[in-house]
């Protein structure tokens, strides 16, 4: 009797062990193979929220532009200790319900500030979001407490990362347009800026800005 139970226990143990092996090992290998290609390209996106030296890149790109020096000046906005540059938004197709807004915010002050929201005539709602790629999954989160701009630091809002989320668009954003909107910071308060609407190709800050700023600013 005892022997029988003992062997049953051993048998169950064996099943558990082999079962666990067979089912755990192979999928792990497959999952790696499956997500590898995906992961290879997403690393540059993962890395983006850490700005290397965006200010320098912008200057270099601007001065490399051959089209007249005066008109290339980046519109820049100051509010409190903050300086906001490269304010741009992605062009949308007609009927698109949402659009992303991007910029570089530098904090010259000695205390953190937070971008908490905004307002725009062309959007029913404006929120601050963070997008992240986790493997092959795109995740988007509202930053309910705002996006921190650390003292002395600089934060880039750009495709693949932080962005101003224009929701409930009342009309499409067309390439080449400049759209006014208000940004709200917890400490510095409100500031009106103009989003230069750009095609997807020209949205990346390092892809730079081939649109003309014309006479605005």
């Amino acid at each position: 009797m005892q022997v029988k139970f003992l062997s049953l226990a051993l048998f169950a143990n064996l099943i558990a062990a082999t079962g666990a092996h067979a089912t755990l090992e192979t999928p792990r290998a497959t999952a790696n193979g499956y997500s590898k290609a995906v992961f290879d390209v997403s690393h540059e996106w993962d890395a983006q929220p850490e700005p290397a030296a965006p200010g320098i890149m912008i200057l270099a790109a601007s001065s490399g532009d051959s089209a007249g020096h005066a008109s290339m000046k980046q519109p820049s906005y100051a509010v409190g200790d903050l300086v906001i540059t490269n304010v741009r938004a992605g062009a949308t197709v007609p009927k698109a319900p949402v659009a992303g807004g991007y910029m570089v915010i530098k904090n010259n002050g000695s205390a953190s500030d937070f971008l908490v929201g905004g307002q725009a005539a062309f959007a029913g709602d404006v929120q601050i979001h963070e997008m992240k790629m986790q493997g092959d999954v795109m995740k988007m989160r509202e930053l309910a407490d705002g996006l921190e701009i650390p003292a002395g630091g600089e934060v880039m809002l750009q495709p693949g990362g932080y962005h101003v989320m224009f929701m409930k668009l009342t009309e499409p954003l067309k390439e080449g347009e400049n759209r006014k909107a208000t940004l709200t910071f917890r400490n510095a308060g409100r500031v009106e800026v103009e989003f230069g609407v750009k095609s997807r190709k020209n949205l990346q800050s390092h892809g730079m800005d081939h649109s003309k700023h014309g006479s605005s600013n």
């Binding site: 143990n13 558990a16 089912t23 999928p27 497959t30």
Partner: peptide, 17 residues
């Protein structure tokens, strides 16, 4: 053993495979 087996077959990786 049953739990290990269930957990393993339920894993999303298993699904991909």
């Amino acid at each position: 053993g049953g739990f290990v087996w269930l957990a393993a077959t339920d894993a999303p990786q298993q699904f991909t495979q």
